[in-house]
């Protein structure tokens, strides 16, 4: 147990009953929060208190609590996943804040990510983008070829792997002034575009995924670079450039 003194915090949390209701920021005071607790543990403490008082706890998404599932989508003090870099909300600790701080907690804001309740948004738009082309079609009926049988250049393999580390958290959308999903979409395109197995469907993939993203209501890319800075996995803008290239080539071809 840490002996550090507990922190006193003022929270401004977005509360919204359901998708239809209006919602507003509610203020909560917390005493004696351990600097060693994670941000989500701090919210658990808040909810314990609310439940004890007979109030409805704050709804927020979380699952793995170790930075791999991408569900802890909170906009904290004006940034996705709070002030840290290369971390998700579940990897953010209260020692990143100061005693007496006021902390704003809001849901992702995007037309394509409608609020379901409180801090929880519907991120199924990402699934539909993925379904539009984020796959390769192979026959798996018992005669699947060993993936390692196809030689892949080391550099391409590394870059494809880096792209594949995207956890679909949506921080890129949340950070972007245009709520653009370009970093996510381009990561999902790149993880195939860089590998021989991805070539067959490459043209359809980029066209369909880009089209789906636009139809879901995500905005255009202004190349501000906010996504790359806020992405917990450090997905590079290089991927967006690749997507732009692939889309141009695909559009010229058909």
């Amino acid at each position: 147990m840490s002996t550090a003194k507990g922190m006193k915090l003022t929270l401004k949390v977005w509360r919204q009953k359901n998708a239809e209701s209006k919602g507003n920021l509610e203020t909560y005071e917390l005493e004696d929060v351990s600097p060693d607790s994670s941000f989500l543990e701090m919210l658990d403490i808040l909810n314990d208190g609310l439940i004890q008082k007979g109030e409805t706890p704050v709804e927020f998404d979380h699952d793995c609590r170790e930075g791999i599932c991408g569900s802890c989508s909170l906009y904290i003090n004006g940034e996705p996943h709070g002030p840290g870099r290369r971390i998700t909300t579940c990897q953010l600790h209260m020692r990143s804040f100061n005693d007496g701080d006021t902390i704003y907690v809001e849901p992702w804001r995007a037309k394509a990510f409608p609020v379901i309740k409180d801090l929880v948004v519907d991120r199924s738009a990402f699934d539909r983008i993925q379904h539009a082309g984020g796959y390769i079609s192979v026959n798996t009926s018992g005669n699947t070829q060993d993936a390692n049988a196809i030689p892949v250049e080391k550099e391409n393999a590394d870059q494809a792997f880096d792209a594949a580390t995207c956890i679909g958290c949506g921080a890129c959308v949340a950070a972007c002034k245009n709520a653009s999903a370009s970093l996510f979409v381009s990561a999902k395109i790149s993880q195939y575009a860089l590998l021989p197995q991805g070539q067959v469907e490459a043209k359809d993939r980029v066209q369909n995924m880009v089209k789906q993203a636009q139809e879901e209501g995500f905005g255009p890319c202004s190349n501000t670079g906010a996504c790359e800075i806020e992405c917990p996995k450090g997905i590079s803008l290089e991927n967006i450039a690749r997507m732009n290239r692939e889309y141009l080539a695909a559009s010229l071809a058909k």
């Binding site: 704003y104 809001e106 804001r109 037309k111 394509a112």
Partner: peptide, 8 residues
């Protein structure tokens, strides 16, 4: 693409 803005 972002009809509702962040409060902060």
């Amino acid at each position: 693409a972002r009809p509702e803005q962040y409060a902060y």
